[in-house]
């Protein structure tokens, strides 16, 4: 059957198109415009072609070395926090009560870190970790640990990582908890009947059923941690040295510190591209898993 074609329908899309144009496409085009030009101020621009991109992707240049160093830092950071937050989130979700007043209490406590503005989180940990007045820093130093996130690379990393774990494990936990709640009782009853141990129940029932929410959790946490800016900026400012300078911090330094608009624009675009590619890969994986399941239902 032919579908009715109604050209007026385009009018309904127009408002969205305008909003997207002004909020995303125009700014992006500006960045693209900057990325292929050089300027010496006075609003005078010179054509530079792909020069900035070549420099960015060449580790022997200053820009390239800074980009790759911060990229590896970012990947390392995302790897570490995923390796901690995902298992920890699952464990916390598994140990939460299933019913009664405890559920509400746990949910409220878990939601708290998620409700705090990001730079407030940074400020909390910045003060918390100070060796002179911060509770954490003061106690650690008096226990004999030489802890100072301002001067020691490892301490700075530990502080940023612990802060992120504190801030975001709740998200993984909440997603997993929702996933666990959706498993029908019959599965647990069948497992009891089949004599499964606690570990076998986790491996054979809970983990497979959490598959999808975990993909979402990993995706969200990867994106967020890969774009992290506010908290490390507030706590360490990217230091000591460059040890906690992630891509976003590097970008701000280049764009607003040095006012190298061309380099910053090129970096922005590559940064953006990496995120979009990772998003796309995750999305494909997830929809494929979903399609698998749909196909099964079709057969059934």
């Amino acid at each position: 059957m032919d579908k009715t074609v109604n050209q007026k329908a385009w009018l309904l899309v127009l408002p969205v198109f305008l909003i997207v144009a002004f909020s995303a496409i125009l700014p992006l085009m500006t960045v693209v415009n900057y990325s292929v030009q050089d300027t010496f101020g006075n609003n005078q621009f010179f054509w530079n072609g792909l020069g900035w991109f070549k420099e960015l992707l060449d580790p022997s240049t200053d820009l390239g070395s800074r980009f790759f160093a911060s990229l590896w830092r970012n990947l390392l950071f995302s790897g570490i926090i995923l390796a901690i937050e995902v298992p920890l989130g699952i464990v916390v979700a598994l140990s939460m009560p299933r019913q009664g007043w405890g559920v509400a209490a746990c949910l409220v406590i878990l939601a708290l870190p998620l409700l705090i503005p990001w730079n407030v989180v940074g400020t909390i940990w910045q003060i918390f970790g100070r060796p002179d007045i911060g509770l954490l820093g003061y106690v650690l130093n008096h226990m004999g640990f030489d802890y100072n996130y301002v001067s020691n690379d490892f301490d700075a990393w530990a502080t940023v990582v612990v802060m992120d774990v504190w801030h975001w494990t709740s998200l993984v936990t909440l997603l997993c908890y929702a996933g666990l709640k959706s498993i029908p009782d019959a599965y647990y009853q069948a497992a009891q009947i089949d004599g499964a141990s606690r570990w076998a129940v986790f491996k054979a029932i809970q983990l497979p059923k959490l598959h999808r929410v975990l993909l979402i959790a990993v995706l969200l946490r990867f994106m967020d941690s890969f774009m992290i800016y506010t908290e490390p900026f507030v706590v360490t400012g990217g230091g000591p040295g460059n040890s906690t300078t992630f891509i976003s911090i590097e970008l701000v330094k280049i764009a607003l510190g040095q006012f190298d608009l061309g380099k910053a624009a090129a970096l922005s675009l590559v940064y953006n591209l990496i995120i979009i590619i990772v998003c796309w890969v995750f999305y494909t994986v997830m929809t494929n898993a979903g399609a698998d399941r749909q196909a099964n239902k079709g057969v059934a």
Partner: peptide
């Protein structure tokens, strides 16, 4: 030491049919 079959199929997703059938015995 009792067996029960429920109204809706309960399948261990990650296992093969054979592993599913063997599960109650393996656990014991």
């Amino acid at each position: 030491n009792i067996a029960q079959v429920f109204q809706f199929p309960v399948i261990y997703d990650t296992m093969t049919v054979g592993q599913n059938l063997a599960f109650p015995l393996k656990n014991r």
